[in-house]
Simulated assay, not measured.
Amino acid sequence: MLKGIEAQLFEGGDNGKTPKYSITDYQKDHYKTCGEIFAVSVAQGGPAPNKKKNGAMTTSAQEQDKNEMSKDNVTDPELIELPEQVDAAGTDTIADLSDRILASGYTGPIIHEWKKAITDAIVLHSAVRIIPMLQQVCDGLKLYSFHDLLREHSETCQQLFVPGHLQKVDAEFLELAMTPIFSEEGSLRRHRECRIINFLQDFIQKLEDEEELAAAEKQGMCNRSADFITICKLFQWLTGQAHIPLIETQRKEFKIRIEFDHDGDARYGDHIICYPVINACAVSITFPTKHLGTYQEFQDIMSQAINNSKEFGRH
């Protein structure tokens, strides 16, 4: 739900997002609803809406100081390049930007010597026009008195809103969280179980390597097929959530229980394939041991299970 809200009402990249300028959404109190969703999400343990620009976080916590605004506060797609264009303009070319400068509310001389005043006006115009949207988000954050908490502990709460603070799900966290329930040491069952755990570790590392390769090639996840599996996608399949617990004590105690099913034939008779069974509420997974004899079998079955699990249920 958070992703859908952010796509509809916020704009910007991975470095931070700010509310879109939309009078229609403002009239319908959509930004207030957005703030309420943020508050509920944090109260229930996440995910945190940590995609907001620092300026938006500051405005949510206190009044925006116009003297502290910078070019980073310009988020309007139509204006975002204008401050740089003004700075780069020469004495003879700055007049070519007159229409766009005047549309920003600037009423002073449009001359080379007044570049700083022009740029400051553009920045202020861009920031001021989204303040009503931010204030409506703040109204929504009053749910559970979260906005009061945000005012009193703005630095502590900053990590919940601003990118770069919260740890993302990675192979290390996932592997440390795995808690296999092994059979008796030295038994044939124990040997099969250890082999499956090794396959799982190799599978997780492969996913992380593919993500790093995609980032290095600057392809991004949006250019990948719907079947492309990421660490976050695997984590959500296993646990029902794609984020690490927000509270440190919960992160340390977080475990994924791994069990093994050696008796598939006794229950199902002669069959060709079995898939792992997930219990997201209990944070556990049960692997069938019969059909996971090689890493290729493991990879194929896991990929099919993850990509075809669109809802809770075995069928």
Rank of each mutant, 00 (worst) to 15 (best):
A282T: 09
Q304D: 15
T289F: 03
Q241P: 05
F287N: 07
F298T: 06
I258A: 08
V283R: 04
F298A: 08
P276H: 06
F287S: 07
Q299A: 15
Y268W: 12
Q296I: 12
E253S: 09
Q304Y: 14
S303R: 15
H243L: 05
D263R: 13
Q241A: 07
R257M: 11
A266T: 14
K255A: 08
E248M: 09
F298P: 04
I285G: 00
Y275M: 14
Y268Q: 15
Q241Y: 04
D263K: 11
G264K: 07
I273C: 14
L238V: 00
D270L: 14
S284H: 03
I278V: 08
P276Q: 09
H291Y: 12
D300Y: 08
C281I: 08
R267I: 11
D270F: 12
I244H: 02
R257S: 07
T294R: 13
I258S: 05
I306N: 00
H262T: 15
I285T: 00
I285L: 03
I273T: 08
H243D: 00
G240S: 02
Y268E: 13
H291E: 09
I278L: 05
P245W: 04
A282H: 09
T286E: 07
D263L: 10
K255M: 05
I247K: 12
R267K: 11
A266M: 15
A280N: 06
Q296L: 10
V277A: 04
D300L: 10
L292V: 06
R251K: 13
H271F: 14
E259L: 11
Q236T: 03
I258T: 02
K252F: 09
I301V: 08
Y295Q: 06
H243K: 04
R257G: 06
P276T: 08
Q304C: 13
G240P: 02
H271T: 15
A280I: 05
I278H: 05
Y275S: 12
I272Y: 15
T294G: 10
